[in-house]
Nucleic acid binder design. Structure first.
Lengths: 106, 106
DNA sequence: CTCTATAGTACATTAAAATATACTACTTTT
DNA sequence: AAAAGTAGTATATTTTAATGTACTATAGAG
């Protein structure tokens, strides 16, 4: 088919959840616990975060490590695969930087 | 709030429709008619394309020019604003290039 | 003995996106 | 006179994504 289209679609499918790129961005500075991610993205809903983390893990972009403690402790970090997204993430921030205006969040 | 998050969200909201980035990519090589875009993205549905084009136009990323002919002729092209997305679009293709595998389209 | 803290699960509901189907306008071609 | 071609509109339906609410486990603090 159309190789370029196929490549674009691959990226699009992996990165374009409502908050996925934001989550990846947060993790790009290092490992974070579930609660830390949540706090750093105030508008994300609990269930939504859980779901997107699962999908990102399923796509091999992030790594999940659960510690057998009480209360539970779970750390998330980028895989090498996910790390390769960094230039893209930065580019996204850059474009937004120049075009964010009266953009209201939801 | 969090500036970086806000910028990322701006970009995410504008680019992340199911086919938006693909449409922008197609237009990045020049003006195309509605039917040409449609043919170049075989899996996109008629209504979906119409809707995404409208949203892209509403977001100021593409320009729509309708010619008063019969049958109708409508051309789409990137605005300057949309053109600034090119580095990002290329980056998306690049990442996909390295990670497209058994990716099945839908 | 009760309360707090964390990272979930389970289930129901709502909202949004995608899809399907049918129809339109007007000119040119057959 | 009928058919084809383009870029839509209108409407209904289905699919997917996002939310909301309630509940769980268990150690340590008080």
């Amino acid at each position: 088919m159309d190789r370029e289209l196929e490549c674009m679609k691959t990226t699009l499918d992996v990165v374009c959840g409502k908050w996925k790129a934001v989550i990846l961005l947060k993790l790009s500075t290092g490992t974070l616990r579930f609660g830390e991610i949540k706090k750093s993205i105030p508008l994300i809903k609990h269930q939504t975060l859980i779901k997107q983390l699962k999908e990102l893990e399923g796509d091999g972009l992030i790594y999940r490590e659960a510690f057998p403690e009480v209360p539970p402790k779970v750390e998330y970090s980028l895989t090498d695969y996910g790390n390769e997204l960094q230039p893209l993430l930065n580019q996204m921030v850059d474009w937004g930087e120049n075009h964010v205006k009266d953009h209201t969040m939801s």
